[in-house]
C-alpha cells in the first residue's frame, strides 16, 4: 500500500514536471475568441502580447463599439459610421462622417477589416497603433466631440461597465488604456479572409473566366499599389483627384510639401460594399473609380509618378471590357461571411 502511494507520488511528480513547463494551449480548437492569422496573410502587427484576447474582453469591446456613451451627448457610437453590413464602412448616405449635432466630417469613414495586420491608421496614417484609433473619433469635434477623461468617468459611473471591466481585466477602476484595449480586442478580431478570392487561393475553388481575366489585368494594372493579400501596400499617394488640397492628407502628418494631397492606398477587400470611394467620397461606383484612373486624373506637383509619362498625365488606360473584368475580380474580394458573422453583431 505504501509503495503504491509512493508510486503515484512519483507519477504525479513526473506529470507535474510536464505540465508545469508547458504552454497553455488553446482550450478548444474552435475557440471563437482566438485570433487566427489566415494562412496567406502577413504576420499580425497588433501587440497581442500586451492585450491577449479573451471572451470577456472581446464582448466588452463589442459593447463599447455599439454604445453611444462614447460621444458627448450619447448620440453617436462607433457603429454609426462603421456598419457590419458595409464591411464596417459607412452608409453611402453619409459620404463623409456625421457626428454629434449632425456635424459633417471631412473624410469618408474607411471600412474596418484586417486591422491587426496594419501598421498605420486613418487616411493620413497619423496613428501608429490600433489602440489609439478610437481616441481620434471620441475627441474629434465633428465626430463624438467628447473627452477621453469624460468617457472614462461615464463608464466608471455606469451600472454595468465597472463589473464588466473587472471581469475582463481584473481592474477595480476603469482607466482609458483598458477601455482602449477592450475596443482593440473587438476590432483586431475583425479578420476578413473568407471571400471567393480567398477560397480560390486557399482551397483552389474556381473563379469564372471573367474573374480570372480580371485578376490578370488587376495584377498588371492595379497591383503596384494594391498589392499583397491585403490589396494595399499601405503607402501614401496622390491619385490625381485634385490639383489643390484643402485636406493635406499625409502632408499634415509629415509636414512635408512633397506629401500634400497624398492619402493612404486603401485595401480593396470588400470594396463592393464600401461605396462611396476615395478619402473625399468622390465616386459612387467602382465604374466611376476606374473611369477616373482611365482619363479623369488631374496633374499636381505631388501626383504619383506612376500615373505620368514625362509631363503627361497618362493614368491607367483601360478599355470598357477591361474595366468590367477588373470589377468582376474586385467583387470576388467580397466576404459575405464577414458581414454575416454573428460574433460581430450587436446583441444588446
Amino acid at each position: 500500500m505504501i509503495s503504491k502511494t509512493k508510486k503515484y507520488l512519483v507519477y504525479g511528480w513526473v506529470l507535474f514536471l510536464f505540465w508545469s513547463c508547458s504552454d497553455d494551449d488553446a482550450a478548444s480548437p474552435k475557440d471563437i475568441y482566438a485570433f487566427e492569422k489566415p494562412a496567406h496573410f502577413p504576420d499580425a502587427t497588433y501587440t497581442f502580447e500586451n492585450n491577449p484576447i479573451t471572451k470577456e474582453g472581446f464582448e466588452l469591446g463589442k459593447k463599447l463599439f455599439f454604445d453611444p456613451i462614447l460621444s458627448r451627448d450619447k448620440s453617436v457610437s462607433c457603429n454609426n459610421c462603421h456598419q457590419q453590413s458595409r464591411a464596417f464602412a459607412d452608409s453611402p448616405l453619409h459620404p463623409t462622417s456625421i457626428g454629434v449635432d449632425n456635424r459633417v466630417g471631412i473624410r469618408n469613414a474607411p471600412p474596418l477589416a484586417n486591422l491587426a495586420f496594419m501598421q498605420e491608421f486613418f487616411w493620413d496614417g497619423g496613428v501608429t497603433h490600433l489602440d489609439f484609433v478610437p481616441i481620434n473619433a471620441i475627441e474629434s469635434d465633428v465626430e463624438m466631440d467628447e473627452t477621453l477623461v469624460n468617457v472614462v468617468k461615464k463608464l466608471n459611473e455606469h451600472d454595468e461597465y465597472p463589473l464588466l471591466f473587472e471581469k475582463a481585466f481584473g481592474v477595480k477602476e476603469i482607466t482609458s488604456p483598458f477601455m482602449l484595449h477592450a475596443i482593440s480586442q473587438f476590432t483586431a478580431m475583425m479578420v476578413s479572409a473568407g471571400s471567393r478570392y480567398d477560397k480560390y487561393v486557399l482551397e483552389g475553388t474556381a473563379l469564372s473566366n471573367e474573374e480570372m481575366a480580371g485578376m490578370k489585368l488587376f495584377e498588371k494594372k492595379c497591383a503596384t499599389c494594391h498589392s499583397g493579400e491585403l490589396f494595399s501596400d499601405f503607402s501614401y499617394r496622390n491619385n490625381g483627384l485634385n490639383d489643390s488640397f484643402g485636406d493635406l492628407g499625409r502632408g499634415r502628418i509629415t509636414e512635408d510639401e512633397a506629401d500634400h494631397g497624398k492619402f493612404r492606398v486603401p485595401s480593396l477587400r470588400n470594396a463592393e460594399l464600401t461605396a462611396p470611394y476615395m478619402h473625399n467620397a468622390r465616386f459612387l461606383t467602382l465604374e466611376e473609380v476606374l473611369d477616373h484612373y482611365d482619363g479623369g486624373m488631374v496633374d499636381s506637383p505631388t501626383l504619383d509618378p506612376l500615373f505620368k509619362d514625362g509631363d503627361q498625365v497618362v493614368g491607367i488606360s483601360l478599355t470598357t471590357e477591361e474595366k468590367t473584368s477588373i470589377i468582376a475580380f474586385i467583387k470576388t474580394l467580397t466576404d459575405r461571411d464577414f458581414i454575416a458573422e454573428p460574433k460581430f453583431r450587436n446583441n444588446d
Partner: peptide
Amino acid sequence: GAAGGVLDPADGAWFWNWNA
C-alpha cells in the same frame, strides 16, 4: 499601444491624437 500610469491620456498624459 495604450498604456496606463503617466502615459494614460485620460489621466494627465500629454498625448497627441492626430499624430499619435
